[in-house]
Write a protein that binds this DNA or RNA. Structure first.
Lengths: 164, 164
DNA sequence: CTATTTCGGATATATTATATCCGCAATTAT
DNA sequence: ATAATTGCGGATATAATATATCCGAAATAG
């Protein structure tokens, strides 16, 4: 019961794209360098975001990944589901029907209380994730990121994009 | 991002113990037979419940597992954490501090908005799980379990406990 | 005291996650 | 056109975790 490590990478990458001027396109090489992450595996995460329609890709020189929608229209839930999948965390195998005291399937009309309770909690979790979007995250980021880092990052991108 | 399969087994086993007369003690062999599950692995789940103080164990003849507390005092969250662990699902590795634009650790005063948002959603999930206890689950079970199965189970236990 | 029952830690196997590599297709700058 | 860049998808290797089993130690009934 845990998130994949790539989730953190993917969300931070989206957050970075949202912080830069709209339409900015960053290749996986640059993203990996910025966060000091393994490029090939980060690219796999971005690929998942692309398949989910969260980022758009541009191939070829000057290509890379860019947000497919305004940051306010990309929720945390969408990113989480893109990376970790949208399957329910609890999969009921209906063991209540098994064993010597089980009865015919038609007698079971709805999921058992255990499954319903666990699914209800999952729903609360998803609801909370759906309340937060990339714009919110970047507002928080602006308040909590050290000014020194913001300056450093601005300078770094200027040099990188100028050099290319 | 998913629950272990043993979670379903553990909760159903607790639910069964709560449904039987207080103080009832069932060995893993009987539990496994009742749900048609692999005995050795089910015992592992019960072991976790025991280590978490949810069930008490009695070794030797006539031994087995029994609830350590009244069913109203055992929450779904406690059982979930006993089986799947109580670690946070999202582990922040602070990649914001890495790479060429990171600054000294002392400049970061609190977790980033991404981690806080994900943890908040987890908190909502735990809160929901903590609202439900074993007594609730069994009330639900009484309403949704086919009467045919209840009768069958009663008979099965009578025979089993008489034969022993 | 002894035989039996049952739990619990150690161990093995299977599955999944993590990480990498390479050829291909698409795009762009020259 | 051509060469260079970049993402995509498949194939593969390794690490971590979940799943499953076994056997010894502990406890009890008789």
């Amino acid at each position: 019961m845990k998130h994949s490590e790539g989730l953190e990478w993917a969300i931070h990458s989206c957050s970075l794209l949202a912080a830069l001027p709209p339409g900015t396109c960053l290749p996986s090489k640059l993203l990996a360098e910025f966060f000091d992450l393994p490029e090939a595996y980060l690219a796999k995460q971005m690929q998942k975001l692309s398949q989910a329609g969260i980022v758009e890709t541009r191939r070829g020189p000057r290509g890379g990944y860019g947000l497919a929608r305004p940051s306010a229209d990309i929720t945390l839930l969408q990113m989480v589901e893109a990376i970790d999948g949208d399957a329910q965390h609890f999969r009921c195998t209906e063991i209540r029907r098994c064993g010597p005291t089980g009865v015919a399937n038609r007698h079971y009309t709805r999921p058992c209380g255990i499954a319903r309770s666990l699914w209800k909690a999952e729903a609360a979790w998803r609801e909370e994730l759906n309340k937060v979007n990339l714009a919110d995250i970047n507002r928080m980021g602006q308040a909590e990121t050290p000014p020194e880092q913001i300056a450093k990052a601005l300078k770094w991108f200027q040099e990188k994009l100028a050099g290319a």
